[in-house]
Amino acid sequence: MQHHVYQPARNPGWKGKCTYQEGDEICRLLGSAQIHRIGRSRQGPHVFIPGDLYLPDGNPDLCGFRAAEFGFHCRAPRDAEIHRLARKEFGQGQAITCPFGPHGGTVYVRGEGSSTLIEQHDMGFNVLHPEMMCPASLMHWPLGDAEKGALAQQAKDLVQQFNRDLRIEAEDPAFFPKKPLPESQPLKHKGRMGREPEPASEDWALGGREDEDVPRADEVVTGVVPDHVQGQSVGRSGMISESANTAQGAMRRSEDAIEALRNAVSDLGGVTNTVVELLGDGGSASLRSWLENLRMAQDGVNDAIRQAAQGNEHAGQYIRNISG
């Protein structure tokens, strides 16, 4: 079985094994924009595509809207701006994100059973690079039967591959060991840290075993800093500290962004109040459009603040985790 080895362009040092095999239809269809499903997180199966994007599946906070024709579930948050944009554009429209392209390749659909794909740059999104674009947006518009069929086939392949992988994982004892290891006990596992459990015959004294190098409470200990602190070498501790510092740097940038966005919301709020005042009871069409766009921008910025703040919670969690 020949698997692709996924090597993100932006992180060449990182490698992951693609669960798709060489020659799989999905790889042929996607060409350079291959999908590589390499594992699962607590949010469910995820895929990586060039550009190091991460697309979670099965997250209850996500919209989950399914376009019948394509079989893709919406991966955008329920309150994402794209839904509002889609509704504005198509009335009852819903937005889904297909698993291709930057930001998951945003695709807008009119509704279940009569889906419509729109080029994402038509909705004002920046496109990063042609080869990273959503294949749907590279196709002719409107889509012909052959193109719809190709997309439906991609979705079908994805589902089949996913189910096949789940079966393989379920049958692989390395993933789910069915029997406990011989004589395995949590405290005797070879990977455990700390001292060995005491033999049943050993006498214990208050403060630790007698042969152990534990200073008494009234004993003053002097000397050099040990090369291991709390079970971890100082070298590793240094690396952890470096990662934590780097993460804190990113978190600070995100906090600065939130601060700037709060200023933007405040400015936009002031503008909105002025326009509402100018609008009075009636007002012109250009004033109403101005107001509508301002509100849309405010909603977008508020969403961004919320997302960035949530991201910072994860950042804090990560820093706490690695700092022990």
């Binding site: 930001h103 004002g124 933007a264 991201g311």
Partner: peptide
């Protein structure tokens, strides 16, 4: 966040 900022 970035996607939403692009929209805004």
């Amino acid at each position: 966040t970035h996607s939403q900022l692009i929209v805004a």
